[in-house]
Each structure stands twice: as structure tokens, then as C-alpha cells.
């Protein structure tokens, strides 16, 4: 009987949640903190300084032993190396024809206080986190956005998109915009359409980064750099907004 109950619970997870459970209040607070407006982000809720990887993985048993996708694309961002030269953004715009008003990736900046009148600068690139439990996919009424069952990439079927923008509200990372030319919401697809599906190994942003910030690869491959960084016992790795339970595949670290 319990088994049946748990199956029923599992089946609920995959179902479309509709629009009533959107964390819009939370998102507004997120925006108020200035994320999209000034590109500055605040500490605390956005950035957790302790490693959350195990917590995030722990939310479904055995996740860290077996990855659901093959290849399981992921990115590790070495934030302290970022210098906001924005070559990644330029490469992304060129490669994926992102218009001036849109974005598939952004760089945030914050000033971390060191003491009396002193601070240091830190840049933080953000992009679609290709969550394992993506709030945008659950919110989409037409299944125009979906989790690719092979690669785990959160993709768009532009023909199905009705432009309701519900996914834009649902995304905890503000990584979706409405593309006027496509008449659909557009987002990062880890360069699947423009590069990976054509045999290239890296995203445009990872290739363009002169500072080695963006490490891209297959998290299900123990030989890959992303796997080794995420599973390093001495390295502190965290994800953004782990409290949403979205289980991101974009990780942050330093050094």
C-alpha cells in the first residue's frame, strides 16, 4: 500500500503544476534586490557560501551515484576568476542570435565589504541552470519548454510557445526573455542547437572565456573536469538558490 502511495507521489512530481504555485512573490523580492535592474546581487539568499551540493543531490536518494542523463551536461563556474570582460555574452549573442534586448547569460557584480570603507569586487556569471526539477517546465501550459530526456538540457519548442511568459516568472534565475522575432520565449540551451548537436564539445561562452571561468562537460563521466570539480573533497562547491528545490546543473566554486 505504501509503495502505491509513493508511486502516486512520484507521479505528482512529473505533472504540470499550473500557474497557481508560482513563486512570484519570491521572484519580485529577487528583482527588488536589483538583479535585473542594476546587475548587482545581494548576499544571503542568492549565494550560499557553504557547499550545498550534497543537500541538493540529497533531495533524491542516490542522485550523486547515478546521473539521469547521458551525457549529463553541466557547468562549473569559477567565480573568482571572472573579470566581466563579457566575451562570453558577446560570443553567445553571435552564436545564438540573441537580440540586444535579450540575454541567455549575464554577469552580476557585487562589492563584498572587507572592513571600514574597504571592499572587494566579485563578478558572477549566471545562465540557465538546466535544473533537474525545472520550475519553468512545470509551469509551461503547452509543454513548449521541456527537459530533454537524453541530455538533460532544458530546451524550447518555439512553435508550441504561446508567449504567456509564465516560465519567465517561474524561473528562479531570471534566465528567460521574450524574443520578439521568434514570438516565443528564448533561453540558453547549452548551445545545443548551434554547437553541441553539430559535434562541438563546448558552449560558445565556455570557449570564449579568456579566464577559464566556465568549465563545461559531462557530469556523468568520472573523467570529466566538471565531475572531478563537483566531487572534489577539498573544493567548496555551491549552487544558486538551493531552497527552490530546482536541483541545478550549474555549479559555483572558487579557485
Amino acid at each position: 500500500m505504501f509503495k502505491k502511495f509513493s508511486q502516486w507521489l512520484d507521479s505528482l512530481e512529473d505533472k504540470n503544476e499550473g500557474v497557481e504555485n508560482l513563486p512570484s512573490e519570491e521572484r519580485r523580492r529577487f528583482l527588488k534586490m536589483g538583479l535585473t535592474i542594476t546587475g548587482v546581487f545581494a548576499g544571503g539568499t542568492l549565494l550560499s557560501l557553504v557547499s550545498k551540493v550534497d543537500d541538493v543531490f540529497g533531495s533524491i536518494g542516490g542522485y550523486s551515484e547515478r546521473y539521469p542523463y547521458k551525457p549529463h551536461y553541466a557547468m562549473v563556474l569559477r567565480v573568482d576568476r571572472c573579470i566581466d570582460c563579457e566575451r562570453c555574452m558577446e560570443a553567445c549573442r553571435r552564436t545564438n542570435h540573441v537580440p540586444e534586448y535579450g540575454w541567455r547569460t549575464k554577469i552580476l557584480e557585487r562589492h563584498i565589504p572587507l572592513g571600514e570603507g574597504e571592499w572587494y569586487r566579485e563578478f558572477m556569471p549566471i545562465l540557465c541552470n538546466h535544473c533537474n526539477n525545472p520550475p519553468c517546465v512545470r509551469a509551461c501550459p503547452t509543454q513548449a519548454t521541456y527537459k530533454d530526456s537524453r541530455t538533460g538540457i532544458v530546451r524550447m519548442d518555439y512553435r508550441k510557445c504561446i508567449g504567456c511568459k509564465t516560465c519567465m516568472v517561474a524561473c528562479p534565475y531570471d534566465m528567460r526573455y521574450f524574443n520578439e522575432e521568434k514570438r516565443a520565449v528564448d533561453k540558453c540551451d547549452f548551445c545545443w542547437e548551434s554547437r553541441l548537436s553539430k559535434g562541438k564539445k563546448l558552449t560558445a561562452c565556455a570557449e570564449a572565456c579568456p579566464a577559464g571561468v566556465r568549465i563545461f562537460g559531462d557530469l556523468s563521466d568520472p573523467e570529466s573536469e566538471v565531475f572531478q570539480m563537483v566531487h572534489s573533497e577539498t573544493r567548496v562547491v555551491w549552487v544558486l538558490r538551493p531552497e527552490t528545490g530546482a536541483r541545478p546543473n550549474v555549479f559555483y566554486t572558487k579557485g
Binding site: 573568482d80 576568476r81 573579470i83 566581466d84 570582460c85 563579457e86 557584480e109 572587494y120 569586487r121 579566464a211
Partner: peptide, 12 residues
């Protein structure tokens, strides 16, 4: 070291 001390970036 301290990359972003001199690298103010496009935002800066």
C-alpha cells in the same frame, strides 16, 4: 591574484 581589483569589467 585579486583579478577583479583591477579588472572592473564592462559593468565597472
Amino acid at each position: 591574484t585579486q583579478c577583479a581589483r583591477c579588472h572592473i569589467g564592462v559593468l565597472g
